Simulated assay, not measured.
Amino acid sequence: MQTLTKFEQYYSTIKQNRWYWLFSIFCRVLLAFAFIAAGMVKILGERFASGLSTLHPMGAYLEALHHTGYYYTFIGIAQVLAAILLLIPRTVTLGALLYLPIIVNIWLLSYAVRFEGSIVTSPLMVFANLYILVWNYDRIRYLLPFRQFSDLGLIRKPKKYSNRFPWLFFTGVFIIMVLTAAFARFGFAVVPRNSLTDCKKQFVHTKNEAAGFEFCDCIHNQGNDLDTCLEAFETATAK
């Protein structure tokens, strides 16, 4: 409980700081905008990322998802609902709780199929969502598996915020953004990219050029699954 007490003392401090508060609003607005845009596509019955070939791993997934009927519409409604709840101050905590499993699913899907379209944005959205949940810790703490709770209560909006800029916090935010982008760029030896031309560019003038071109053909022309194409690429480069 000593660690929790220290955290709650720190939490009480940051809730009085204008920059932490502004960052929470910034995260809420961006997350809401992203889900409203993505959700409305589904509600209107259009295929998300319609320009992506159905032979692409993510394109094949989205095409199949598009044909699930009312389930596809339900996902769109859930996204828009989460976004609206995030924008309303009284329901922001509920919105963040609804938002979390959806965006984590998108994050894992993006990594699983190495989709460039959301391989950077989706993990950053997860971090932003977690920040909102932490910002609203005083409201969700009773959902956590603690044996006992302090008398922290609900922290009210202060009459006057502290304007001290939290350099350490925003330095950490910047580092997380850089590391996320770096992992997306260098974390995977091979990615299918979004088109045959872009896929081939990553192998031009490299020792694995021939095997790489075969990998791209395997994905974009033959329409094989990612694991099959990766296995063939690894076998060819191991020789």
Rank of each mutant, 00 (worst) to 15 (best):
D138Y: 08
H205M: 14
R28E: 08
V126Y: 01
A181W: 12
I140F: 00
L44S: 15
T197A: 15
Y20S: 06
I36M: 14
F203H: 07
Y99N: 01
S118E: 09
Q2T: 10
N136I: 11
C216Y: 05
E209Y: 10
G95N: 02
I119F: 04
W21D: 11
H220M: 12
I175A: 04
M177N: 14
A181K: 13
F74G: 14
S50E: 10
S12V: 10
A128E: 03
T206N: 10
T171N: 02
A128F: 02
A83L: 00
S150V: 05
M177G: 15
T180E: 04
S53E: 00
W135E: 00
L179D: 05
Y142N: 11
S24R: 13
Y71Q: 01
L98F: 12
L4I: 11
I14L: 09
P101N: 14
L65A: 09
Y11N: 08
S122A: 15
L133S: 15
P158D: 03
Y142T: 08
R47D: 02
L87N: 05
R156H: 08
A34V: 14
L86F: 01
I84L: 14
I175R: 04
L98G: 11
S110N: 15
Y10D: 07
A32Q: 12
T197Y: 14
T13H: 11
E209V: 14
V134H: 01
I102A: 13
K207V: 03
L31Y: 02
C218E: 04
R147H: 13
S24N: 11
A232L: 09
C229G: 03
E209S: 10
L87Q: 00
P158N: 01
F115Q: 03
Q79T: 02
L94P: 00
I84Y: 00
F33T: 13
L109S: 15
F188K: 06
L94K: 09
I219G: 00
G223W: 05
K15F: 09
P89T: 03
G45L: 05
S162R: 13
L86M: 03
R139M: 06
L30S: 02
T235C: 07
I176P: 02
N17W: 01
V29E: 01
K200A: 10
I14Q: 06
R90H: 12
T73C: 00
D198T: 14
L87I: 03
L133D: 13
V190C: 07
A37V: 15
Q9Y: 05
L100I: 12
A38R: 11
